[in-house]
Simulated scan of single mutants.
Amino acid sequence: MDAGLLSAIGAAVVWGTYIFVLKRSFSGYPPAGLTVLINVSALAWFLPVTVATNEFLTDGIGGLAQAAAGVNPAAVAVVAGTATATAAAFVVFLRAIDEGDVSYVTPINKVVPMFVLPMEVLLLGEVLAPIQVAGVVVATAAVYVANYEPGSLLAPLVSAVHSRPAQLALVSAACYAIADLGKRVALQELAIPGTLWVPLLLTGAGLVLLPAAVRNPPRVTRADVPKFLAAGALVALGEYLTTVAFASLPASVASPVINTQAIIAVMLGGIVLGERYFRIRLLAALLAVVGVGMIAL
């Protein structure tokens, strides 16, 4: 198993833990403001790494000017597009859960890899072995099952034709897929250094969400400051591991593995909080292991 796949698995664990922490510790905060504050915290953790690993940042004004002169416009466009797609996916998902039940909308929103796979094949000419394609399908099904609550298994997808919340969830998933492709292009085709990409993405997504955060600012208590620092550390680590994965793997492989974060989150909810439908979550975890194993072959 190569370093990229190990990083993707590590990212899934970190992001799953982060989702669980958000659910337990930040339920009263407005989403946009919360995201901006946590991104700022993550930047504070990660910027020393960026400075230490990118020479132009330590060469003073001359180094910065030289780096600015050599900036590839395509790289700027990809960074801006990826950050915008990430923020748009988040906002549209919030609209979806505002208009529909979380238990109905969330599984649909987790089919991101099924958008990534055909887009990467058609737009970037990626070629996967049949066993890897099957692994992507199984891993995606695992994430869907992890967020599913008993009823008709395909009902959320079947009724998506007529349900606005479901349609919004699909749009959000497509936006996340575009962001995943942007990460792959930025890190592989454009060769943006990973330690530079992380703060660029965090800053870009934060700036897109900043107007909404200003309109509805979060009120941070002193007792919550350590929580923000801890959440920022998780985001910094999660983004770095995600970056390493997308720098070496096809997006259609990295995306389903990293999206198994949802399974980590619901498993933690079942173990720590005693949430319902734990057997379904165990089935999802088993499917995820099988899917990742097929991808690794």
Rank of each mutant, 00 (worst) to 15 (best):
G135F: 09
L154E: 15
A142G: 05
L190P: 01
G206D: 07
V208F: 06
I192C: 03
S159L: 12
G182H: 06
V158I: 13
L202F: 13
A186H: 04
G135Y: 11
D180A: 09
L128R: 06
L168D: 07
L128V: 15
A177S: 06
L154P: 12
T203L: 14
L123H: 05
L202D: 12
L181P: 01
G182N: 06
A155P: 15
A134V: 15
L207Q: 11
A169V: 09
K183A: 15
A213T: 14
A134E: 08
R164M: 10
V143S: 08
M119N: 03
Q132M: 03
S159H: 13
A205E: 03
V121C: 10
A191R: 01
V214N: 03
G182P: 08
V127P: 10
V143L: 01
A142D: 11
G182T: 10
N147Y: 00
I178N: 04
T140L: 05
A213W: 09
M119D: 07
L117C: 06
V214G: 02
L187N: 01
R215M: 11
Y144M: 05
G204V: 08
T203K: 05
W197Q: 12
A142R: 04
L187D: 04
C175G: 00
A146W: 03
R215H: 12
V133E: 06
A191T: 04
P150A: 11
L153S: 15
R184S: 08
S152E: 13
L117Q: 09
V127R: 13
R215C: 14
L123C: 07
L168A: 05
A129N: 15
L181R: 03
H162C: 13
P211Q: 14
S159R: 15
S152G: 15
L190Q: 01
P211Y: 10
A160W: 09
I178D: 06
R184M: 05
V133M: 07
Y148R: 00
V121R: 02
P199V: 13
V138A: 04
L168R: 03
P118N: 03
Y176R: 01
Y144I: 02
L207W: 09
A174C: 13
L200K: 00
T195Q: 13
A134T: 11
A129H: 10
E126C: 00
L122Y: 00
L170K: 00
R164E: 12
A129R: 13
L201A: 07
V185M: 04
G182L: 10
P199N: 14
P150C: 12
L201G: 01
L170H: 03
I131K: 07
G125R: 00
V171W: 11
A191G: 02
L157F: 14
A142Y: 08
L200R: 01
A177Q: 03
A212V: 07
G182E: 09
I178A: 10
E149N: 10
T203F: 07
V137D: 09
S159P: 01
A179G: 09
P211S: 12
V161M: 14
H162P: 10
T140G: 00
E189R: 10
L181M: 07
G125V: 00
P211N: 14
M119F: 13
Q132H: 01
V145K: 04
